[in-house]
């Protein structure tokens, strides 16, 4: 049976058995921001000296008067955003995730979240797949930092196509938002027709043996891992959760009730991150055996993105192995 037959037809995913296309997730953000700017005059953007690498240049070229270069000053970046939002603007403020929200968390907390201003924080180059830049630039703690803040919504798109949709959705959401982007080219698994709604999780492929719940760059890897597992006789259900906060508890619980075994996968610290968020939902509502895949209380290091993803066992092969050893453990 073709792997594609198991897929949720309603989601219009790409054909996984054909060669996949790759594109950095941040490219989709850049397109989405420009679109949002065309739809809504109040959308503005500011960047901390990383305009091209966070892909804000598309917006800047289209709307030079609505783009502000802040320089290497991430505290100013987000706080200025809260001021713009006070005048009915919808500011997207971008940098690398290691610096924003890495350096300016308190300003985000006080002037954006407690002050409840709809600033859109764009953290690019998250995860170990940043590669050669090394640990300083490989942000792994951003999910934990952002999801703990009241009023804040947190997104991690699976691919560039979804990033574009999330960016548009953010531009009409009245709350503070954080979106996590990756540097490296990531497999495109969704299409224009694939739905996205804030707070909605999606069952990418149905299965009864185990639930693989993934976010961001790991959703494509989870999908590929499910194919490898299928060949080993394991019928995995892949749940993609592009909104980390608010989490789609219903979809998580429904899948867990079916499979009674859950693996979470994220390119981030498991402590306090996405896996922790899923664990909170399960332990309070329907405890099942679970394991969180991701980075375990350590920093990344230099290397090629592929090397690092393999080293941390977050490629499809690594995920498959970790799932198999989890299943053998009880």
């Amino acid at each position: 049976m073709s792997i594609n037959e198991q897929f949720n037809q309603n989601l219009y995913l790409v054909d996984l058995l054909k060669p996949l296309n790759y594109e950095p997730i941040r490219a989709g953000f850049g397109r989405g921001l420009k679109k949002a700017g065309l739809i809504n005059n109040n959308v503005v953007a500011a960047c901390a000296d990383l305009t091209e690498s966070t892909q804000m240049n598309l917006f800047k070229e289209q709307f030079p008067e609505r783009f502000f270069e802040i320089g290497v000053a991430e505290q100013n970046l987000v706080t200025l955003g809260s001021g713009l939002a006070a005048l009915n603007k919808i500011p997207f403020v971008s940098s690398y995730a290691a610096f924003s929200p890495g350096r300016n968390w308190e300003q985000i907390r006080t002037t954006i979240c407690l002050n409840d201003r709809p600033v859109k924080i764009v953290g690019s180059h998250a995860g170990v797949s940043v590669g050669p830049d090394g640990a300083t630039h490989q942000m792994l703690e951003d999910i934990a930092l952002m999801r703990v803040l009241p009023n804040m919504k947190v997104f991690a798109p699976a691919d560039s196509v979804e990033a574009e949709k999330i960016t548009l959705a953010m531009s009409s959401d009245p709350k503070p938002n954080y979106i996590r982007l990756a540097r490296e080219k990531t497999a495109i698994i969704t299409t224009e027709k694939t739905p996205f709604q804030i707070g909605q999780g999606y069952i990418l492929t149905k299965g009864g043996d185990i639930s693989l719940m993934a976010t961001g760059t790991m959703s494509a890897q989870a999908l590929l891992a499910s194919e490898l597992l299928y060949k080993e006789g394991i019928d995995a259900e892949v749940v993609h959760l592009p909104t980390i906060k608010p989490l789609d508890e219903q979809t998580i619980l429904k899948s867990a009730m079916k499979t009674r075994k859950v693996i979470t996968i994220e390119e981030a610290q498991v402590n306090g991150g996405f896996g922790s968020a899923v664990a909170e939902v399960l332990s309070e509502n329907y405890p099942v055996r679970m394991k969180r895949l991701g980075i375990y209380d350590r920093f990344g290091e230099s290397g090629s993105p592929d090397q690092l993803i393999k080293f941390f066992k977050l490629d499809s092969q690594g995920i498959k192995e970790q799932v198999l050893s989890f299943l053998k453990s009880f």
Partner: peptide
């Protein structure tokens, strides 16, 4: 934070 917020607001007023 106040001066940064003022800056954002001043840009907002201008726009």
């Amino acid at each position: 934070c106040g001066l940064s917020q003022a800056a954002g607001m001043a840009l907002g007023l201008r726009l």
